[in-house]
Design a protein around this nucleic acid. Structure first.
Lengths: 192, 192
DNA sequence: GGGTGCATGTAATGGGTTACATGATTCT
DNA sequence: AGAATCATGTAACCCATTACATGCACCC
């Protein structure tokens, strides 16, 4: 809800634009689906927090361009003043690793390789975003965008380090499991 | 749902125990509320994935102790084989920082200080968990628990570094804002 | 001709938190 | 006396994703 308000302080936009912008620039810490965006915009408009103007296009469908109102800015402010409480992320990968002894190291290694791919792709995306920000230094928010981006970079680097370290640990674990005295109740897994 | 199954492979437990265990050991990457745990246990029991035995206690209410069944283990296995897809966390703090120019650096600094407190508390909690794990090396899952814990440690360290760096950046930003030519449309904020 | 992008929207479904209710014991 | 802990459970509610629907234009 308030994301939309916040993004509309940058410039007036349509719901579609908002969706694009979200997945291009803040997806690494916030996401909204269109199933969320459009109804929320309607609500915000009904409450007088934003106003919409229809923009006609040839060939393409009409666009509803929304602008934030004074009332909207006030609402955004009030929300910004509320201290964000830490939220517990749900990390399915970690959960599966936690029960790793059931799955065996082979499966986990695949998951980690895939994770590394994703994280490296994210790093590239960050590079792209960084260039976008430095093109738009005229906006007063630009330094803050940079800070949010930096969070993503630092976190992803940490993830990469962890994943690499973990792959090494798993290697050792499967070597230990292969030694004769290491096998107790465990059923031997096919392959490594 | 499957967390419960997974945790019950460690040993038979009650819903209450599961809740305790979750918040003591895996809260940093997974959480379930009792409003979720109890109904899920009922469902799992109805499906034959776990079985419950009533344990009577004097003075205290009866406990339903659940054990995982063979069918339950199979279900857990199938779930473990499904590749976890990356999930986008929602970080309200980052979102508020992203719109930082609206709120001003003072508010953000408070949020960051609070965040640092939380992260440091988490580090301490991790120390506690680490000691618990090293007491329970007889479990075959122990190395995997260690890996999951390591993730938390590395991530939290990264967060701390980012927060400290960001506090320094904000300091600079508010100094720049104070210089005469830097003030355009911005209302001056009380205190720095 | 078929897929993709633009653009908006709704409905079904699933997930999860919060708040409430109960009731006994133990601690302060 | 009152609060907290143990222990289980339900109901209301909010939020979010997914899938579906429409319709035109452009490209291969």
């Amino acid at each position: 809800m308030e994301v939309l308000l916040g993004l509309l302080t940058i410039e007036p936009m349509s719901g579609y634009d908002l969706g694009q912008l979200i997945r291009e620039s803040i997806r690494h810490f916030w996401n909204e689906s269109y199933g969320q965006i459009y109804p929320n915009l309607k609500q915000l408009a009904a409450g007088g927090f934003i106003t919409g103007k229809i923009e006609k296009q040839k060939g393409k469908p009409d666009r509803q361009i929304y602008s934030i109102t004074k009332k909207g800015r006030e609402r955004l402010m009030r929300w910004l003043e509320v201290e964000p409480q830490p939220e517990i992320p749900r990390n399915e990968l970690l959960l599966k690793i936690f029960f790793g002894a059931q799955a065996g190291p082979g499966t986990l290694r695949n998951y980690l390789e895939r994770m590394l791919e994703n994280e490296r792709a994210a790093l590239q995306q960050f590079g792209f975003i960084e260039r976008e920000i430095s093109k738009n230094t005229q906006y007063p928010d630009a330094p803050y965008w940079q800070i949010a981006l930096r969070f993503g970079q630092i976190e992803v680097e940490a993830h990469v380090r962890w994943a690499e370290e973990t792959l090494a640990v798993l290697q050792k674990l499967s070597r230990v499991k292969q030694t004769p005295q290491g096998s107790r109740k465990e059923k031997p897994h096919a392959g490594e």
